[in-house]
Amino acid sequence: MEKLLRVLGRWGLSVVRTMGRMIIFLAESLYLIFSPPFKFNLLLRQIRFFGTKSLVVILLTGAFTGMVLAIQLFYTLRKFGSDALLGPAVALSLIRELGPVLSALMVTGRAGSSLTAEIGIMRISEQIDVLTTMALNPLRYLSVPNIVAGIIVFPLLAAIYDVIGIYGGYVVGVKLLGLSSGTYFSQMENFLDMSDIRMGIYKSVSFGIIVSWVSCYKGYHTDETGYGAEGVSKATTEAVVMSSVLILVWDYFLGSVLL
């Protein structure tokens, strides 16, 4: 019994300790965002890394998400005779929910994992120690550019996802299912509001912070998850799982608070 309690206690303590470390990591990174010198070159590099390189994935998944949504919603809405509302239904689900969440999940899989691996390798090959011994703060080079890039890139990716998805829905709804193209768009304008778009942006920005934060943290502390190459692979998996779970939990939380 005592042993069991001990195990439980140790586990609890380690969870609390990790959470504390993660929060300190984020806090220090956020502080460094506002203290010069700023690394614009690294920021551009990470914008390219998160954004430009994710474009193809986002275009593909966005288009198909919109098309699937249009088919599914069309049959549901037709049962109530309100297929005219297909446009707003597709646009609302994309802008408020699916755009930010799915694009964030796609980027987590594509960029978050390789970011963790890259930083993890820098850790095990002592490149991070090089920065430390040069009296430079590694976070300024590793986490700050990524967090800023995440804040900038995620909302833009979500917006691209939304637009492509809406046009994907248009192709299915109007070209395949025979809705008039006027209804699809004009109804959308009537039902959508700036507050919906703002909500999507808030979500994306927070997902950007979550993904870059978790990925950087996991890479930076690779030596905590395991040794050498195995540690990096474990850290990568953990980063993807943790980011994805946090995205969905935070999405629910924001959704219920902002509604």
């Binding site: 820098m122 090959s125 002592e126 490149q127 120690d129 090089v130 011994t133």
Partner: peptide, 9 residues
């Protein structure tokens, strides 16, 4: 510092 694996970026 010259690190073990040279630790170049």
């Amino acid at each position: 510092v010259v690190f073990q694996g040279s630790a170049l970026f």
